[in-house]
Structures are given as C-alpha cells and as structure tokens.
C-alpha cells in the first residue's frame, strides 16, 4: 500500500513512517500543505494521512482542495485537537476518518486498512456467513459457535471477541484495538477487562484456547 503522510512535526512523521514500513507499506512524507497538494495530485496514493495543523495551507484546506479536484483517495485526519467540533468539521471538509493524537499504533493501522478496504470495495470477510478456523466454526447468521462440532455457549462480548480473532488470524491485536472493536471505546478506561474476557474465551473454547497467545507488552494473536 502507498501512503502519503502530511505532517510538519518531524518526530511524529518519523515513528509513523517506521511503523508503517514495518508492515510492508511504502510511505512518502511531506511537511507542508503545498507539497501535499502537489504530491497527492501527481502520484496515486491508497491513503493520505493528513495532520490538521500545518504551516502555510492548513490541513482542512488541503482536504477541501483535494476534494475540489475530485481526488478520491481516502483521507485520515490526524490531530492534537480533539474536540468533537474539530472532528465534525474535519469530516465536513471531506476527510473520511479522524484519529486524535496520541494514538495507539495498532489503531492507526486498523483505520488505514479499513479505509483502503472501503475504497477498493474489498470486504470478503464481511460477506462470509460461516467462518472456520482450525476446530472452530462460527456462524454469523445463527451466532452459533462450535468447537470440534460441539456447540459452545458464549456471551455477546465473547462472541464479538472470538469473531475479531478469527477474522484477524495470525495478526497481533493490541488491547486498545480489541477494546475499540468489541466495546466501542476509543479511550482506555484503565481496566483489564480485555484480559479478563480473553481468559474466559480461552477457557470456553477448550483446546482451541491455546491458539490465542499472549504477546508480552503487545497484545494477543490467534495462530
């Protein structure tokens, strides 16, 4: 995936670029609105990450101008201003999503992927009603979960959690990402609710529970 990063704070740009490069994505970085407009129109990017506070042309104006030139590239706004009015304003000028700083890196990756999926119309995961993974099977229509063909009773949150693991098999999921996906929380409520639920889920799915591994200081992954 090709990403254009528009960010005037070099140290922020630096860790974002390294983090995304580690996921195998290529990142071009510019630090002014003027450069952003030039780059975005001359190169085809999959996603644009746009800081709102820029010297010269402001992020919002960059966004407005890109949309006026009918650039359809998904835009994710990044900003240290997090009031709800800012968010509404950002989406009004044509941004597709909005992430306040500081953010969890996993969350940034998830948002970029979601924007890319939406833009390319690729949503195979969402259309599949029956998921299987190892000895686990999950029926989205009947909400039935089976392990080795035996039905397992799960609560709604446990089901959501299992579904998240099954659709992200082999990928690391941070606690924040899980919290956001299952509980709809953007902020950390300083609880260990994720660990508690992962523990419960592991016990309920028996031998398959071992496939959910804890990665020290990072999160969980279903192998």
């Amino acid at each position: 995936m090709n990403i254009l990063l528009v960010e005037d704070e070099v140290r922020v740009a630096d860790f974002i670029r390294r983090g995304l490069a580690a996921d195998g994505w290529s990142v071009d970085h510019v630090s002014t609105g003027e450069d952003a407009l030039e780059q975005a129109t001359s190169n085809g990017y999959d996603v644009i990450l746009l800081d709102l506070m820029l010297p010269g042309i402001q992020g919002k104006d960059v966004c407005r101008k890109l949309r006026a030139r009918s650039t359809k590239t998904p835009i994710l706004m990044l900003t240290a201003l997090d009031s709800p009015e800012e968010k509404v304003e950002g989406l009004k000028v044509g941004a597709d999503d909005y992430l306040p700083k500081p953010f969890d890196f996993d969350e940034l990756v998830a948002r970029i992927e979601a924007l890319h999926r939406r833009a390319t119309g690729y949503a195979a995961d969402a259309t599949e009603t029956h998921l299987t993974s190892g000895a686990l099977s999950f029926d989205r229509a009947s909400l039935q979960v089976q392990v080795h063909g035996t039905e397992v009773q799960l609560s709604k949150k446990e089901r959501d959690l299992l579904l998240l693991f099954m659709t992200n098999s082999g990928r690391v999921l941070s606690r924040e990402r899980i919290l956001n996906a299952v509980w709809g929380l953007n902020e950390d409520p300083l609880t260990n609710v994720v660990d508690v639920y992962v523990g419960r889920l592991r016990r309920k799915i028996g031998s398959e529970g071992k496939r959910i591994v804890t990665l020290r200081n990072v999160g969980y992954r279903m192998n």
């Binding site: 860790f15 580690a22 953010f103």
Partner: peptide, 16 residues
C-alpha cells in the same frame, strides 16, 4: 499531546 504522541508512538513502534 504532540510530545505525548511521540513518546507513545516511539515506544509502541519499537515494541511492535
């Protein structure tokens, strides 16, 4: 928020 984003981001990216 910007310095916090850098501290958090650096630690997070290195851990990942």
């Amino acid at each position: 928020r910007t310095p916090l984003a850098i501290i958090l981001g650096e630690a997070d990216v290195t851990l990942r």
